[in-house]
Amino acid sequence: MPRLKTLEDLKKLREDAQGELKVRLETGTKIVVGMGTCGIAAGARETMHAILAELEKREIEAHVTTVGCIGMCIREPLVDIEQAGKPRITYGNVKPDMVPRLIEEHLIKGNVVQEWVVGRLPTSP
């Protein structure tokens, strides 16, 4: 029976990953994608995938997670970006083809893409 790639791989990965872990959790960028029914129907899974692919391509290390419904159906797919010390920004109707610009502007240049913003929260404590 074909099984999952060796757990040996994982041991090695774990060692590599462990060292950098602390730093990232403290200073890192957090991206959250909504995965409620409307989000899924509007393409949130593909948007999440586009984000992972873009981050990998540009070798940016960010923490990407998904959440259930956040109650803004018509704005799905919703993507939240939070960086230490900055307000949390929520972008709406984020389609995969918008992702490269979003990553470029927000993460690399540090500019909020105003026209796509649907909400913002002050810096978390």
């Binding site: 790639k5 041991k11 462990q18």
Partner: peptide
């Protein structure tokens, strides 16, 4: 279990 305190969402782990 194999990963211990490294989360599955870690960039390297998730792509693996």
């Amino acid at each position: 279990r194999e990963l211990g305190d490294v989360p599955i969402s870690h960039p390297r782990i998730r792509s693996w």
